[in-house]
Simulated assay, not measured.
Amino acid sequence: MDRGQAPAKARLLLADDHEMLLEMFALYLRKNHAFTVETARTFDEAAQKLQTEDPFDVTLLDWNMPGMHGVTGLKRALQLTGGRPVGIITGEALPKVIDETVAAGAAGIVLKSSGVRSLVNALNLILSGERYLPFDLVMRRADPNEESNDTLTKREMLILTEIAKGKRNKEICSDLQLALPTVKMYVSSLCRKLGAKNRLHATVIARDLGLM
């Protein structure tokens, strides 16, 4: 490389059907870091780009976007990239999901809740040839007694569905004829079970897990 010439930017394909999150990540990477970013909102769109555009240095795929079908989409993407790294981006990952992705050859798992700085760190590690797993996922994978995300009660699922509609606690109280402390209790419980930081995060995790 000539002295003074800027290093070539790494080409990233980022695929996720959560439009706001997708654009936020893409904008940050384009503005602040050494990446050129292409985006897709379905697995079929991502697969098309992998087949028709110049090779991507790294590809990140949403675990639960349309057409992905979990590990099936991951394996297909690995075939299309010709050995270049493919990672998973998700709201939450159960131990089974972690095992399946690692066994299939994923370059890493990135949690959407980790934020853009952690995303950059993950991408740099993957580009260096390493596999990236967040520390809390490593610990969860090692603990077979970790509480499963499929333990939501019917009432918690009902509350979660109302939250996903954008309803506030008082609206949920009125619609379901429940007391406000009861609704708050259910919200706290479902967030704890899903490992969510807040109500919005809970809906993202639930969607990625196929719970709603």
Rank of each mutant, 00 (worst) to 15 (best):
M1V: 09
M1N: 10
M1Q: 12
Q5R: 10
A10E: 09
A15F: 09
D16C: 07
D17T: 15
E23S: 12
E23C: 10
M24A: 13
A26F: 05
A26K: 02
K31I: 04
K31T: 12
T36C: 03
V37Q: 01
V37G: 03
E38C: 14
E38L: 08
T39L: 04
R41H: 08
T42D: 06
Q51N: 09
T52S: 15
E53C: 12
P55S: 02
F56M: 05
L61R: 06
D62R: 00
W63C: 12
M65H: 01
P66I: 05
G70H: 11
T72K: 13
G73T: 05
L74P: 10
L74Q: 02
K75Q: 13
Q79Y: 01
G82W: 01
G82E: 02
G83H: 07
G87K: 01
I88C: 08
T90Y: 06
G91D: 00
G91F: 00
E92Q: 14
E92L: 14
V97W: 11
I98C: 10
I98L: 10
I98H: 06
T101F: 03
A106N: 03
A107P: 01
G108I: 07
I109P: 01
V116R: 09
V120I: 08
N121R: 15
L127P: 06
G129P: 09
Y132Q: 05
L133G: 07
P134T: 06
F135Q: 14
P144C: 02
E146K: 15
E147V: 12
S148Y: 00
N149P: 15
D150F: 15
E156M: 04
L158K: 13
I159F: 08
I163R: 01
R168D: 13
K170G: 03
C173N: 07
S174K: 09
P181V: 06
V187R: 08
S188T: 08
S189V: 10
L190M: 04
L194V: 07
A196D: 06
R199Y: 04
L200V: 14
L200F: 12
A202K: 03
D208N: 12
D208G: 13
G210P: 06
G210D: 04
M212T: 15
